[in-house]
Design a protein around this nucleic acid. Structure first.
Lengths: 301, 301
DNA sequence: CCCCGAGCCGAAAATATCTTTCAGAGGTGA
DNA sequence: TCACCTCTGAAAGATATTTTCGGCTCGGGG
């Protein structure tokens, strides 16, 4: 088999440094200068025009073009494009260094990157750890429930409100209780065919367990969304949906990642219910959308 | 001191598809054609000259250049370079391909996987599209503000509450207003040294714009967290933080992914402020943690 | 020591590509 | 209906890239 030695025609995408080494001996002095610059700093060179690169290397435009040709590209333009690709490549290569904790003196850009990464991780963990059988059972119960009560306090209260808000939008009767006393008062009204959902990261929040217990004892279907499936709350839950517990740091309290995790679970629950009640959910969704339309002023552009 | 970093972002590195989605609504018809082509086939477009892309999309060179500008590049040449980089990127990380929409008859396990994937994507897009200069400015203002008012209605209201709750925890005076009338009533009390934050995905929610406007006109520092940085709300915002706009489907309303995006932005803001006020934030955090401890009953087992 | 040829190199012309300008098309509100 | 305003593409103008072409250096004879 023939070895196409010097002038490989296919525009090499990645292994450019190697190509430079291979071809260097067959290059003239000025060409080597150019090739070296290109191999040494692809990103930097990608930002330069022919003229710029010629000046940088102390040569002429013609030489730059000749070098590009020797490297297998039709012209400098194409070499430059390949360079940009290469730069992007090795840019991504050094990305995963963001795993460290967020520090007090991190620049704001790092904070964004780390936070996004952490939350992505939390989502992946949650999805992996979610018991789809339990979820399916919870969905089935919610889709047919006469009414749905949601309990949550503190940060979890917002998640509960989110869930109730969405369920209302697809025509279900759902209510998020924020006041523990009122929650218990309401819970004792529930009976078989009703549903109660408790949200607590710790799994041991008394204010949330009490109403769930009341609902459980009166025969309602109960669900617990918690990061501690072995906690007290599970005693009174027919179905337990587990949220993930991410490492926390001084600057990043547990509430933050648990919220992300809880929201994913709640979203899954919601979509599941929406699927099951599609006939009524779809029109209800668009109806609520249209009812809000007039609240938006026309764009200014 | 005013720097010229007003609202345009640095030449976007990667998340181009996200940027296209964010900016698409503010684009003219022909520009959308170009943007679509670019987002749909970065590699293919990178191989084309201005004229080529103009012909492919059935528009003119001028339109192509205009689109490139809108996307944040100095001209088409630079867009093309970025495109080449993007192409190289997705060349390596060959598609995970869970990208399909959630269907009515998807099994529950698929729903979980798709939802988790979509939200991860949303997080990545948001992080990539967030202007850290604007964020830094917002953080600086928040850290020194006398009081902070947050406006949001509907789904955004929960995000607002989340932000206010967290800021309170580190000792800042923050309040989330849910009632539009009360919000305006309160906003007119603000003055220089105070801060107002409006959260609206559409960027055109009157109930949120009005209080922000009142605050803006009275000299408070104003921030808008929106998916439409070109929307009316930005008129009255000193700093605009852009959230990402994910594709939505019938079963997955925009509110869902916009919430994920908004929460990330809000978290970044919070952490930023916590860094800046570390001396007081750290003790405040642990104090609020301890105050809640007695609310948790001991775990079983 | 001088002359000659071969190939390398860069200045500048020629070409391709990108950017800007400008005037007409098409739509919108009064 | 008319005035106005924005979008759009054709063509002029500006840059960047490629090609041409002649000078240059270097090494080997005469």
């Amino acid at each position: 088999m023939k070895e196409s030695f010097s002038s490989d025609s296919p525009p090499a995408p990645a292994a450019l440094a190697a190509k430079v080494r291979t071809l260097a001996p067959s290059m003239t002095r000025s060409m080597q200068l150019v090739a070296e610059a290109v191999a040494g700093d692809p990103a930097g060179c990608a930002a330069l025009t022919v003229t710029g690169l010629a000046e940088l290397t102390g040569t002429s435009e013609a030489t730059v073009v000749r070098t590009a040709r020797l490297l297998g590209y039709p012209g400098y333009r194409d070499l430059r494009l390949a360079l940009a690709g290469l730069a992007a490549h090795q840019e991504s290569g050094r990305a995963p260094a963001v795993t460290a904790d967020i520090a007090v003196d991190d620049p704001i850009a790092d904070v964004v990157a780390k936070l996004a990464y952490d939350e992505q991780q939390t989502l992946a963990d949650t999805a992996a750890g979610l018991d789809t059988l339990q979820l399916g059972a919870a969905v089935a119960a919610a889709a047919t429930a006469r009414r749905i009560d949601v309990y949550g306090v503190g940060a979890s209260s917002l998640v509960g409100q989110d869930l109730a808000q969405k369920l209302l939008r697809i025509g279900l009767i759902a209510h998020a209780h924020m006041d523990p006393h009122l929650a218990v008062t309401n819970a004792v009204q529930l009976r078989s065919g009703d549903m109660a959902i408790a949200i607590t990261h710790s799994g041991s929040t008394g204010d949330v367990i009490e109403p769930l217990r009341a609902a459980f004892e009166r025969g309602a279907t109960t669900v617990a969304i918690t990061g501690r499936p072995d906690g007290p709350v599970s005693q009174y839950a027919d179905h337990v949906l587990t949220t993930s517990t991410a490492r926390e740091s001084e600057l990043r309290p547990a509430a933050m990642s648990s919220r992300t995790s809880q929201l994913l679970v709640v979203d899954c629950l919601f979509i599941g219910v929406a699927q099951r009640t599609y006939e009524t959910a779809a029109p209800a969704l668009s109806a609520s959308y249209e009812a809000l339309a007039h609240r938006h002023t026309p764009r200014t552009r």
